[in-house]
Amino acid sequence: MSPSSKKTVLVTGSTGQLGLELQDVFRNQVQFECFFLDRKQLPLDQINLIHPVLDMYQPDYIIHAGAYTAVDLAESEPLLAEKINHLASDQIAEYCAINDTKLIAISTDYVFNGQSSLPLDEDSATEPLNVYGETKLKGEQAINRLLPDGIIIRTSWVYSKYGKNFVKTMQRLLSERDQIQVISDQIGSPTYAKDLAEAIFQIIDSDKWQGGIYHYSNEGQASWYEFAVTIRDILNLQCQVLAIGSEEYPTAAQRPKYSLLDKTKIKNTFEINIPEWKSSLQKMLNEVSN
């Protein structure tokens, strides 16, 4: 533990969507000293470097937001995805167990097979359909084994004003084209990374640490098609959005058809208020236009 009176927080994956939103959220919080490490400062694919790098900072908390997230590419790079999503998480959890460090690790709705028709809670059966989901699930299992007091937050359909994501891609396509096609048979909920970052801050800033798996996405449900139509309507664009089935847009990695997350546990445990997805989308698009 750090000798100073300030709690130290170390964030992995600092240049990802969530990492950058966490930088914004923690920036003016004087009770924390924060270290934001990118893939050069903490290369998650170099497993033997993880303990020595973390030792340099001796954090009180680690927010493990770094991951291999290229879902389709993972199908052809399974060993790299395994290193980053599973083995690096294993090493981080081991470090936390040895050094009495608190861990919040980010996982994914892609640990599920999409066969449910009801919102998925933390005890729902996992059965990933792709390499990304498999490697993230192995990372979860390593954390649970080595660090039962660790917190794992599964999230879905993450977007932000930072980085590449569905919202920014749609923004571009909807303004460039007269017509686009978007998948309508995959159901979940978008997650504004800023909302997730604020929830993570609230957990760390509270005295209510309780290890386990939690689900977090914005409230409500949508298909990718509905998500795209809402983006178009908020931006007041004229592009026609056509609904298509998953089979009409084949991808290297199979996606779950239904991965709506039940957020009851995180709301009750940490008294977190979760915004509805359309209101968060409106906020993000306002920030981008400003």
Rank of each mutant, 00 (worst) to 15 (best):
Leu242Asn: 14
Asp24Gly: 04
Gln141Asn: 15
Glu248Gly: 09
Ser116Tyr: 10
Gly66Pro: 11
Val25Ile: 12
Ile234Val: 13
Val131Met: 13
Ile63Asp: 08
Ile63Thr: 03
Glu122Trp: 06
Arg27Tyr: 12
Gly133Asn: 05
Ile92Met: 10
Arg255Asp: 02
Ser206Arg: 01
Val167Asp: 06
Gln41Ile: 09
Ile183Glu: 07
Arg154Pro: 02
Phe227Cys: 09
Thr108Arg: 07
Leu49Glu: 14
Leu18Pro: 07
Thr155Ala: 09
Thr135Val: 08
Gln254Cys: 12
Glu122Asn: 02
Asn99Thr: 10
Gln31Asn: 14
Asp123Gln: 14
Lys83Ala: 15
Ser4Ala: 11
Asn113Tyr: 02
Ala105Asp: 07
Ile266Phe: 07
Val167Asn: 05
Asp207Arg: 07
Ile274Asp: 05
Pro59Arg: 00
Ile274Met: 06
Lys278Asn: 05
Leu261Arg: 00
Met1Pro: 04
Asp195Arg: 00
Ala105Ile: 10
Gly139Thr: 11
Phe166Glu: 03
Asn28Gln: 12
Thr169Trp: 14
Glu75Trp: 07
Glu219Phe: 07
Cys239Trp: 10
Tyr258Thr: 08
Phe35Asp: 03
Tyr192Gly: 08
Asn48Met: 07
Glu21Thr: 10
Cys96Leu: 02
Met1Arg: 14
Glu271Gly: 12
Lys40Gln: 11
Met56Gly: 15
Lys40Tyr: 12
Gly16Trp: 04
Val229Arg: 14
Leu173His: 10
Lys278Glu: 15
Asn236Ala: 13
Thr8Pro: 01
Val11Gln: 01
Asp60His: 09
Asp149Tyr: 01
Gln91Val: 00
Gly114Cys: 07
Gly245Tyr: 15
Phe166Lys: 05
Ile231Pro: 08
Ile98Asp: 13
Leu42Trp: 11
Asp55Gln: 14
Ala65Lys: 01
Lys136Gln: 08
Ile272Gln: 11
Ser4His: 15
Leu129Trp: 05
Ala97Pro: 09
Lys194Asp: 13
Ser280Gln: 04
Lys40Gly: 00
Asp185Tyr: 09
Ser124Phe: 12
Ser117Phe: 11
Gly16Ile: 09
Ile104Met: 01
Glu21Cys: 02
Lys6Asn: 14
Ile203Tyr: 04
Gln202Met: 06
His215Gly: 03
Leu174Trp: 06
Tyr68Gly: 06
Leu44His: 03
Glu134Phe: 03
Ser289Cys: 11
Glu248His: 08
Ser156Asn: 13
Thr135Ala: 03
Ser116His: 13
